[in-house]
Design a protein around this nucleic acid. Structure first.
Length: 569
RNA sequence: GGCGCGGUAGCUCAGUUGGUUAGAGCGAACGACUCAUAAUCGUUAGGUCGGGAGUUCAAGUCUCCCCCACGCCA
């Protein structure tokens, strides 16, 4: 038995996430966590909402709420949706937790002691009306280059020229619309990532088994141009972790907070403290401190490609730079983007399917199966309703669902609602067991390597073996001449339903649980000996004929949904 | 403009360190079967592996140039 620490990138707090966000980290992380648990390993699977920063403040203001109330409410919303998709986090934390505040301040203090933090004076645009400094993207004005009226502080959308907020003519705050803006000098802290460059470089180079997507992004940031740059880790905001050196004040940094990218990954650790605090566990250090038992932990992170630089460089800078015995990530699984029907998902235009909407129209398993079996691993991939309908109907309804249906209904009509007696296995059954054994081994190999699409394909191939077998031995024919032989065949097939329920659970947990319940089996032990697993339900064991496990998506529904989620252009 | 990931059968994708007739699933066609959610199983369908040049006894698989899509950055 091994110990696996698994984290998913933290979804940002402002609003419901879409299916692309879901398949980009949380869902594959859940697949891996469920598989590892099923194999008997000890797993700690953590995720949290990323709550600090300007976008949260603005979203709260728009909603007419305090940022604290807004975040608390949105955390509840996201947490319920996570439950809806059966994401099996051991704890779903919050980056705004007291634990994270304290730990973030701790790391900042230690990094400062190690000489890895510098203070830099900058000029920034201040808005007295808003009572705050404005980041570039919250300033608009007339482009000095082309005269475009709604140029942003960092770039003009019209002529494409890069701008500095000071250059804008008649700059205004996009928050209040105020034009009374002024430049003020303000001090900020920078993390000296450049000092960590060689260490990080060597570390990345040692990870030859990581996905190319992960290492190529990391190397690009390390070597491009002047190499890895220092990063500002503070902001002039109210909402966030107050800048302190551990428990002590940081002279000159009063009223400032740490920038989100600095505190968000630290929440991975703080989340485990929240997990203990919530009474779900009793020792977080044995997962995170290599001097306190975490040296035998395998730590795997899941994330979308946009998060790779933070996880390969920034967060490791914090960990390595502290020179404290924190557990460093062992494997980073990153994903490309999921597009929606020929374009991108768009929150502002209501384009694409969002997590809440998805659950409104179909159960979680339907989405889990499609998303995981089409995970954007090697390149961006695309959601289309035709493809979704095809996969659900064929894979889930026809291949797996119908298998359970045909076997149980045949048994009920020819024998009874109990595992029938008699008959002896022959060569064909030996072959089936050999095929299932080989197929299961392949499936397990892909799951352990986190090859999500390949694992899905291997699982589906296992389902097909059942249909193949039935078609070939044709118990409906055998029954006419040799009922005992037919009984043996059906007994095997009934046990296969149970087998499928167990091995499919990481992908489709609800349907798996339903099938297991129909088989009236409590034992969901992962099969290591197929022959033995297929004898688990003995002769005479009663079962129930399951309801339709997966229904089909009709053409009418597909067209309706296609229309409904197209968004405004 | 720079960089990154891609461009393989109608569709979605596999293709280890270069090596015999380039694979899978879906869709399509045909056949078998009739237990089942009009489900299943089998067979077939022949894509100059984006284009060009090169290295090699041998390239989808390495090098160079170009084209296309997407993304990131400046």
């Amino acid at each position: 038995m091994a110990r696996h620490l698994i984290t998913s990138a933290l979804p940002y707090i402002n609003g419901v996430k879409h299916l692309g966000n879901l398949i980009g980290s949380q869902l594959p992380a859940d697949l891996f966590a469920r598989y590892m648990r099923a194999r008997g390993h000890e797993v700690l699977f953590l995720c949290a909402t990323d709550e600090h920063g300007t976008p949260a403040e603005i979203a709260a203001a728009k909603a007419g709420q305090s940022v604290q109330d807004y975040c608390a409410e949105m955390h509840e919303v996201q947490s319920k949706l996570a439950d809806g998709f059966r994401l099996s986090f051991d704890h779903y934390g919050r980056s705004s937790s007291p634990q994270n505040h304290k730990l973030t301040q701790h790391f900042a203090g230690v990094l400062a002691e190690r000489g890895l933090i510098t203070e830099v004076e900058e000029n920034m645009m201040y808005s007295p009306v808003d009572g705050r400094y404005l980041p570039d993207r919250y300033i608009e004005g007339t482009c000095p280059n082309c005269g475009y009226h709604d140029a942003r502080g960092d770039q003009c959308d019209d002529c494409g020229k890069l701008l500095d907020p000071v250059d804008l003519i008649d700059p205004r705050s996009t928050i209040s619309g105020s034009t009374e803006l002024e430049m003020r000098a303000t001090k900020h802290l920078f993390l000296r990532q450049s000092a960590m460059k060689d260490k990080l470089d060597a570390w990345i180079d040692s990870k030859s088994d990581w996905p190319v997507l992960t290492t190529s992004i990391a190397k690009k940031w390390l070597h491009d141009g002047d190499g890895l740059q220092d990063r500002g880790i503070t902001r002039d905001l109210d909402w966030g972790v107050a800048v302190q050196k551990g428990d002590d004040a940081w002279p000159g940094m009063e009223g400032k907070v740490f920038y989100v990218w600095f505190d968000a990954p630290i929440e991975y650790i703080a989340c485990s403290q929240e997990w203990v605090e919530a009474g779900k566990g009793n020792d977080w250090e044995r997962w995170w401190r290599t001097d306190k038992g975490a040296d035998d932990v395998t730590y795997t992170q899941f994330m979308g490609k946009d998060n790779v630089p933070f996880h390969t460089l920034s967060f490791p800078s914090t960990i390595l730079g502290s020179e404290e015995p924190w557990k460093l990530v062992d494997y980073i699984k990153s994903f490309n983007y999921l597009n929606y029907d020929g374009g991108q998902f768009s929150t502002s235009r209501g384009r694409g399917v969002f997590m809440n909407q998805a659950l409104d129209i179909l159960p979680a398993d339907y989405w889990r199966w499609w998303l995981l079996s089409h995970a954007p691993e090697s390149s961006d991939s695309e959601f289309t309703w035709e493809n979704f309908q095809g996969s659900v109907n064929k894979d889930l309804a026809d291949v797996l669902g119908n298998f359970a249906s045909r076997v149980t209904k045949f048994c009920r009509s020819k024998f009874s609602e109990a595992v029938p007696e008699g008959g002896v296995q022959g060569e064909r059954e030996t072959q089936l067991i050999a095929d299932l054994t080989a197929g299961l081994k392949e499936y397990e190999g892909h799951m352990e390597a986190i090859e999500v699409r390949k694992a899905a394909a291997a699982l589906r191939a296992l389902w097909v073996l059942g249909n193949e077998y039935l078609q070939e031995v044709a118990p409906w024919s055998t029954f006419k001449t040799d009922p005992e032989q037919a009984a043996m065949q059906i007994r095997l097939a009934l046990n296969m339903i149970r087998l499928y329920a167990i091995i499919s659970a990481p992908f489709i947990p609800d349907a798996s649980a339903d099938l297991l319940k129909s088989m009236r089996s409590e034992d969901d032990t992962w099969p290591t000996d197929i022959a033995a697993a297929l004898a688990t339900m003995p002769e005479g064991h009663a079962f129930d004929v399951p309801d339709v496990t997966f229904r089909k998506i009709t053409d009418a529904e597909r067209e309706e949904w296609q229309e409904q989620f197209a968004g405004q252009s």
